[in-house]
Write a protein that binds this DNA or RNA. Sequence first.
DNA 1: AAACATTTGTCCGTATGTATA
DNA 2: ATATACATACGGACAAATGTT
Lengths: 221, 221
Amino acid sequence: MPVPKNFVSPVRMSAKERALSQLQRWIIDGTLQPGEKLIDAELAESLGVSRTPIREAFQLLEVQGLVTTHPGKETKVTEIEKDDIFKMYSTMAALQALAAEAAAKVIIPEQIEQLRSINQEFSSAIKSGQAYQAMEADEQFHNFILELSDNPYAASFSASLQIHIRRFKYVFLKQSITATQASVDEHDSIIAAFEKNDSDRAQAMMKQNFIRPMQELHDLL
Amino acid sequence: MPVPKNFVSPVRMSAKERALSQLQRWIIDGTLQPGEKLIDAELAESLGVSRTPIREAFQLLEVQGLVTTHPGKETKVTEIEKDDIFKMYSTMAALQALAAEAAAKVIIPEQIEQLRSINQEFSSAIKSGQAYQAMEADEQFHNFILELSDNPYAASFSASLQIHIRRFKYVFLKQSITATQASVDEHDSIIAAFEKNDSDRAQAMMKQNFIRPMQELHDLL
DNA sequence: AAACATTTGTCCGTATGTATA
DNA sequence: ATATACATACGGACAAATGTT
C-alpha cells in the first residue's frame, strides 16, 4: 500500500517541546506580557505536564532571550522597548546580507523560480491586506535564502532574531500590516542579482531590505 | 572590618552551571571528541551530581550546537569538519563588522586607549610565542568592541561562535599559534578608524581581520 | 518476532535559598 | 532580627522509547 511519503511529520513532540513552543507563542503574541512573572508550577498545571519540562523550556527560553531568570529568585518574561528594533534589525540585516552573498554564488534557476513564486504570494498578501500571511511569506523568502547559503550558524541566529522581531511587531504594532510594496520590489532586486550571480548587489539589496523598514518602524513609534 | 570590594565574584554556581562549563571545556579541548556518545548517568556520576543538571546542560549545549540530540535515542558531541571554518569565520566577520560600525560612532578616547593597551598585550604574546595568551587577548579586543556596540544579540551570537572557533582550533591545530603580526596591524587600523569615528573603515578592517585568517587557516589544512 | 537491555523522558518529593512580614 | 512563605534547584524513581539479540 502506497503510503504518502511526505505526510505532515509524525511529530511525537515531547512534553518539553510542546511546553517550549506554547510558551514561545504566548510570549510572542503578548499573552504573557513583558515583565510578567512566570511560575513553573502554575504553567505546569495549565499545560498538563509536570514542572520538569517547564523548567527545561525556561532554560531554552532564557538562552533565546525571551525570559530572564534571577537564579533562586524568579523568572520573568524579558522586557522589550522600542529602541530594541535597531539592534534586532541591524543584526538581522548583517546575517541576511551574508546569506544572500553566499546564496548568489550557488543558486540555480529552479530555485530562483521558487523565490519568484514566494514573492508573488508575498505581494498578493499585501495587496489583499492579509498581514499575517504577508509576514509568513516574507519569512519564507528569507529562510529559503538562508537554506541556500548553507550556513547553520547564520540560520540559527536568524531564527532566533525572527522570533524577537515577531514579538516586537505583536507588542508594539498589534498585528497592523508592516510590509509594503517597497519590500516586494527589493525582493525582486535580490532575485535579479541572483540571476546574474552578483553577490555584491544581492548583499547590498538584502541589507536595504532590512534597514529601510527598520527606520520606517522607528519613525512610526 | 574592611572587606575587599572586588573579591573574585562570590559565584555560587549552580550544579547546572558547573556541569555546563565543564562539558564545554571538555568538548572544546577535545577531551570529549566529535561524535562521541554522551550518557547523562555516566557524566552525572563523574561530576558528582544527579542527572537533572546534566540533562539541563545538554539542552543548552544543543542550542549552542556543541551536542546533537536524537530524541529518545542518544546524544552525541557534534561532528566538526575543516570546511566549517568558512561558515564560522564569515558569520563572525559579519557580526564583528556590525559591532565595529556601531562602536565607531560612540567610542570615547579613554576606551580607545584601553583597546590600544589590549592590542599591546596581544602583540607581546605573539612575539613571545604564547599561543593561549594571544588568543585570549585577541578575544578580549573583540569582546570589548562588542560591549561598546551595545548590541546584546550580536554579543550573544558572537560568544557562541567564539566557542566553536576555539574548538575548531583545538581539534585541528592542537594549540599551535594562529595569530600573526598581520592581526596586530589590522587591530591598529581599526583603532585608527575609531579615532576618526570612521565607521565605514572600521567595519571594513574588522571584516578583513577575520577573512584573512580564515583563508590562511584553510590553506594550511 | 518478541523479550531484553540501554538510554532518554517525566514526575514528584525534598532541600535550599530569597524576599516579605 | 527572626520567622514564614514561596519559588527555584536538585535528586532519585519510574515510564517510555529505541535498538538488539
